[in-house]
């Protein structure tokens, strides 16, 4: 196995265990891993912008367009680039007003694109989906009918819960209270799925830790766990006593 792969395994296992060590107590290894994560994350995003956006979308097309003297393409690159760069002027108060041009373009473009399509997908289509089964009520099986009724009652009662233009009392209060049960079922299902998702992620990390505990990775996980245990024992029985004595 290549040296870089083994080194990668040691770094991955080490950083994972350093982060997990916080579950026992705060310690310098956790802090180091935390700071490294922030630094590495920032560096990753900077290189991403330079090599995957500026180089690919601005620098290289500009070189080609300049060499062929294609002024239309040159302007098609320059204008969006200037609009994009104008966003950075926010950090310079004196000329921060320039950023409005970039934001205006972004907002207009995004709203124009997202509003009509989003309205159709999330609004009209969903209303249609709730009513549609009743147009075909004769052909529904009892199960499908119950499902359609639950959906209809659930949608209406939850909408009532979020309708604040009239006071919630009498029949309105009863319907909106009924909507709470539907919301609670939704939150319960979401929470159950969240627990499952977190366990899946934990499984993913543990699976890697077990893989890196093999001989081919020179028992990376095992050695790092031993190191951490020694540190915590030393801290408990030696370091704390020394600190207490000196103070």
């Amino acid at each position: 196995m290549e040296f870089s792969t083994i080194l990668g395994a040691w770094v991955a296992a080490g950083l994972t265990l350093f982060i997990f060590s916080f579950l026992y107590k705060d310690n310098p290894f956790f802090k180091a891993a935390e700071h490294l994560y922030i630094g590495a994350g920032l560096a990753w995003h900077i290189q991403l912008i330079i090599y995957k956006i500026i180089k690919v979308k601005v620098w290289e097309p500009m070189k080609v367009a300049w060499a062929s003297g294609n002024w239309f393409t040159i302007w098609m690159i320059i204008i969006p680039t200037i609009l994009g760069l104008s966003l950075i002027t926010q950090f310079i108060p004196r000329i921060s007003w320039l950023s409005r041009y970039g934001f205006t373009f972004m907002m207009g473009y995004s709203a124009g694109l997202a509003l009509p399509a989003g309205l159709a997908t999330d609004f009209t289509n969903q209303i249609l989906g709730t009513i549609e089964p009743f147009a075909n009520i004769v052909n529904l099986t009892p199960g499908q009918l119950i499902n359609a009724l639950i959906l209809l009652i659930g949608s209406i009662s939850v909408l009532f819960y979020f309708f604040f233009s009239i006071e919630h009392k009498g029949a309105v209060k009863k319907i909106s209270n009924f909507g709470i049960y539907f919301l609670m079922i939704y939150f319960g299902a979401s929470f159950g799925n969240t627990v499952m998702a977190r366990f899946s992620l934990l499984y993913g990390r543990f699976d890697l830790l077990v893989r890196y505990s093999n001989a081919q990775y020179f028992y990376a996980t095992n050695w790092i766990i031993v190191g951490l245990v020694i540190y915590f024992l030393l801290e408990k029985f030696v370091l704390n006593k020394v600190i207490a004595k000196n103070s």
């Binding site: 939704y186 799925n193 499952m196 998702a197």
Partner: peptide, 11 residues
């Protein structure tokens, strides 16, 4: 999708 977002795609 992840289990967390699964419920939201029901509609």
């Amino acid at each position: 999708v992840t289990a967390i977002s699964q419920v939201g795609y029901g509609p």
